[in-house]
């Protein structure tokens, strides 16, 4: 049983759930079950809009996270902190291009972490 379960774990490698699309705030939006996250760069600040899968609001005020963005050929790491309800922000200190590549990690109040790749 356990052997089969272990095999199934690596067979079912979660490559899916990262279908990019344009979100309501004009940024790239991807699924990060159970959330949907949208990455909106604005100057040197990156805003991450978080909703549930069904577009309902999420209390982001207890969330923390990390954004790693590829800016100017170098990875830039910045901690995400809640600003307004539903949004986590991070100031990278450098100008962020609109089509930035990167990944974010968000940890909820329950300690559960989700990741999204853009």
């Amino acid at each position: 049983m356990l052997r089969i379960a272990t095999l199934l774990i690596f067979l079912a490698t979660p490559l899916a759930a990262h279908e990019p699309g344009i979100g309501p705030n004009g940024g790239m939006r991807v699924d990060a079950s159970p959330y949907r996250v949208e990455l909106v760069p604005s100057g040197t600040v990156v805003n991450v809009y978080v909703t549930m899968d069904d577009e309902s609001a999420v209390d982001t005020l207890t969330m923390t996270g990390t954004a790693i963005l590829l800016i100017g050929g170098k990875p830039v790491r910045a901690p995400l902190a809640p600003t307004t309800p539903g949004v986590l922000s991070a100031d990278t200190g450098v100008e962020i291009p609109a089509d930035v590549k990167g990944a974010i990690q968000i940890t909820g109040a329950d300690g559960k972490t989700v990741q999204a790749k853009f």
Binding site: P14, H18, I68, L70, G73, K74, P75, K101, G102, A103, Q105, Q115, A116, K117
Partner: peptide, 10 residues
């Protein structure tokens, strides 16, 4: 080198 990528895994 110049190849930089992010990989997420569980």
């Amino acid at each position: 080198g110049t190849d930089i990528d992010f990989l997420t895994a569980t």
